[in-house]
Structure formats: C-alpha cells, structure tokens
Amino acid sequence: MDRANARKYSYHFEWLGRPVIQYPQDMIALQEIIWAVQPDLIFETGIAHGGSLIFSASMLELNAACGGPPNAEVLGLDIDIRAHNREEIEKHPMFKRITMIEGSSIDDRVAARVHEFAGNMKRVLVILDSNHTHAHVMRELELYSSLVKAGSYLIVFDTVIEDMPEDAFPDRPWGKGDNPKTAVWEFLRANDRFEIDREIQDKLLLTVAPDGFLKCLKD
C-alpha cells in the first residue's frame, strides 16, 4: 500500500473517458454491491473529475438493461464543482442519470436537499468520499446514514489513512487518529443498524476502504 500510494496509484485510471480516483479492486467490489442491492439512488459525496459518478451511472444503466430499476439515478455532491469538470460530466452519455449539487455535505440546508431528492426511493446506496477528517466524516454519517435501509450499504472511502505512516499526508488536515476509519469506529459504537461486511473486506487484499463497507442490517 505504501508503494501504491507513493506512485499515486488511485490516479492511474479512467472510467468511460473520465478520471476515476479509485482502486480497480474497490470498483469491482462496488459493482458487486450495486448489482446485489439494485438501488434506486446512489448518493455520493465528492465529485472531483466525475469518474465515480459516471461509473455509478453506467452500473445503473446495466442494471436497468438486465431488468433492474429503469429510472435509477445518481446524485453527486461536492463543495466545489469545477467548471471544466461539470462541462465534461454534463456532455457525457451517462449524464442522463446524474444530478449534481454544489455545496458542503455537512451543511444542514444541503443535507435537506439531499433528503428531499431521495424522497420515497426504496433502496438508496450512500458513498462518502469528500473531506477525510474525523469530524467531517462523522457528521456525514450522522446526516446521511438514515437514507440507507436494510440490505443496502453505506460505503466510506479512504479509511486506509489510519493505516498509513504518520507523515503520509503532511499537506492535509487528516492523518492517523483523525480520518474516516476513526469516524466509522465511533459511528459503529453508537449505531446497531450497520456492521462491517467482513466477506467483502476479506476478499479485498488491496483496498482504500478497510472497515469502510458497511451493510445495513435493519431499517
């Protein structure tokens, strides 16, 4: 993992023409989850170049072609959607399934818009991948975990930060002891609706989300 991080491995790939800042192994795991869950909505915090939104939309397109929800959507949220990224996302063929909101994921007014968008959708999959500090991720978990119902997933990326060397992120506000994994641990201590999916974790030998694939056990 140290070697992969040093070479910026997660920045090496694209999905349908857009940079996707993920490990291929995690994308395959996410594909398996999307197929199993058959969500009506995938909600993601963190957009960057849009590759992850395009990936999710294309998975929903495949689900629909195989008899899944025909009108399933992707909702992406980012505090700063750069104009050139927005332009590329909006002209992509998969944009027909995508809606984007610009704003902070921990702003109560923005969260209210997300909940309104989700409305009465039966099966929502939530992916958190924005600011990686403990406090930020903890607040996202508090605001959006209620969207996820039994059988679906709440996925928290970049929990691997806790397992990296102390000096791995000198220019970032997160690091060992203050990151998505510490937020997940705190969240799970007080919430019995979710558990870490150990089956997924055990087969992912290389992942940026150890302890980050959370399965919802009950509504």
Rank of each mutant, 00 (worst) to 15 (best):
P70F: 01
I127L: 14
N85K: 02
N71M: 13
A135G: 06
V110Y: 03
V74A: 02
D107E: 06
K96L: 14
R86D: 13
L141A: 09
G151L: 11
G50M: 11
M121H: 15
A72R: 09
G119S: 07
S105Y: 09
L53N: 09
A72W: 08
E87I: 07
D40T: 01
A65W: 10
S145V: 10
E88T: 15
E142I: 07
V137R: 04
R139C: 12
E90N: 14
E116Q: 11
A57Y: 05
P39W: 00
G67P: 03
P39N: 04
I101F: 14
V137N: 01
S105H: 12
K91H: 05
A64R: 04
M59N: 11
A72C: 12
G103W: 02
P39Y: 01
R113A: 05
D129M: 03
I34R: 11
L77P: 00
R139T: 13
G103R: 01
E142C: 06
I155E: 01
E140T: 05
M100N: 06
S105G: 15
L60G: 00
I155M: 01
V37K: 06
V74T: 01
L60E: 00
A72Q: 10
E61K: 11
T159N: 02
A150I: 06
D108F: 06
Q38R: 14
I81N: 00
E140M: 09
M138K: 15
T45N: 11
H49A: 15
D108M: 06
E162Q: 15
M94S: 15
L141Y: 05
I127S: 08
I89T: 12
V160N: 10
I33R: 00
N63M: 06
I33E: 00
I89C: 12
P165D: 09
I127M: 13
I89W: 10
N131K: 08
H134G: 05
G103V: 04
H115L: 04
I34C: 13
D78Y: 11
V156M: 10
E142Q: 13
Q38K: 13
L62G: 03
E61F: 08
I161Y: 03
D163N: 15
S58L: 05
F95V: 09
D158G: 09
L77S: 04
P69M: 15
P93A: 02
F157G: 07
L62Y: 08
A118H: 03
